[in-house]
Design a protein around this nucleic acid. Structure first.
Lengths: 235, 235
DNA sequence: TAGTGGTCTAGACCACGGT
DNA sequence: CCGTGGTCTAGACCACTAT
């Protein structure tokens, strides 16, 4: 018997092989159902999976086409620093540098969508791998959204890890860039001369309330982000 | 009537709100079907969507749990440079610097999984935005996989854009990093003093045959990658 | 208006994996 | 063993949208 996964794979093969070219129209569900000797629903399931995977584009009446790919996609998983270091057998250390409830600079206020009189929690901390600075975490937490953070000292657990456990759902915006370190970055990260830094900036939301904005700074000579992607799930 | 999308959203809300905590077991399909007054299949559809979105983990007999999130995810779309620049109203220019069929350096041979006696196509080109160097594209193409590339001059179209049109399906690996420019980078990109570069390295495969390896170099002061992600599709 | 995809139901059987 | 999820069928009706 033909399962929708089988059908999914057959269709995938036809796309990969070029039998069905990019931008080309492919047969209707009903026709494929006939070909594979199954219900239309089963074919539909397979085609929807491919559409979800971004390989097909479907429109009622217009039919189904192979996507004309215009971008390369990369799915980046940014793990908890501690896990990342421990996984490769390194020695992890966390150090809280400062923690204070203050009014945020304008830029951060804008990111978190808080007013000028509202205070936020500012936490500066360092993550070490084998004794060497690996990441500087410069974080602001919107206390209106996460009041619980007031009760947490962040002495033993990093804000990143704590938030990941506490906040059940978020939207996120990331910015990745290369930069020259600020004097403060340099001071904390003990960089080599002219060594650039790799910066990840992230703002996360719980529904539409901003939770936190963070600037993660890594020594450029020893850090990189790696991703491995397939164009469609194997199922 | 309750569609599976409605149910999807209701379940999503319960996860977001914390009513169903991270790591917690949630009711079985049959129970939810009863609650929502629909078939189990409909509930199944909604839960599968959430599982695909990475919010639920499902195991037969063990039931369904809310995922304990351990990473932040970012989905990066890397557009065609030309489109990117034109979209924001910039003036795009493409310049082919060199194109030769030679034996690749060992590092590239390893990436493309080709032998030392096999030649590959090496293409060096520059992308400009408003007259300023925006991206240096240093590319190797495995001619065994894409013999058609021999007939393309790449005078008028960049290898990136050409490949995206030609190769119907790929797996990809990306590396993002910050670096000090090589003298050659500096020469082509006309960097400011001590300006770092943002590098994207990508290898793509057609099934298990390597297609191409590319090093995309951007001036650090004027380039960044931005992503916006939702934890689950809205459907 | 007609063709194509989107989705539901009711019932069924199977597959996996805790207990 | 038996509860839970995985999936199929047959038939039906609906919702878009190209022509």
């Amino acid at each position: 018997m033909r399962s929708y996964k089988d059908i999914h794979n057959i269709l995938l093969e036809r796309i990969k092989s070029g039998e069905w070219p990019q931008g080309g129209l492919i047969p209707a569900e009903a026709d494929l159902a006939l070909e594979f000797g199954c219900t239309r629903v089963t074919v539909n399931r397979a085609m929807q999976a491919l559409a979800d995977g971004g390989l097909l584009e479907r429109r009622r009446k217009a039919g189904t086409r192979v996507i004309q790919r215009l971008t390369r996609n990369a799915h980046v998983q940014i793990p908890i620093v501690r896990h990342e270091i421990e996984k490769r057998g390194g020695n992890y250390k966390y150090l809280l540098i400062s923690r204070e409830e203050v009014t945020a600079p304008q830029k951060v206020q804008a990111e978190l969508a808080i007013g000028p009189e509202e205070t936020a929690l500012h936490i500066l901390s360092l993550h070490f791998a084998d004794g060497k600075p690996y990441q500087l975490e410069d974080r602001w937490i919107a206390l209106g959204t996460v009041p619980l953070a007031r009760q947490e000292s962040f002495d033993a657990i990093s804000p990143n890890e704590w938030l990941l456990q506490q906040v059940p759902y978020t939207n996120a915006e990331h910015v990745f860039r290369a930069a020259q370190p600020t004097p403060e970055d340099d001071d904390h990260l003990k960089l080599a001369p002219v060594e650039p830094v790799f910066i990840i900036e992230r703002t996360t939301w719980l529904s539409d309330k901003a939770v936190t904005h963070v600037r993660l700074v890594h020594p450029g000579n020893s850090f990189q982000l790696v991703t491995r992607d397939q164009n469609a799930a194997t199922l």
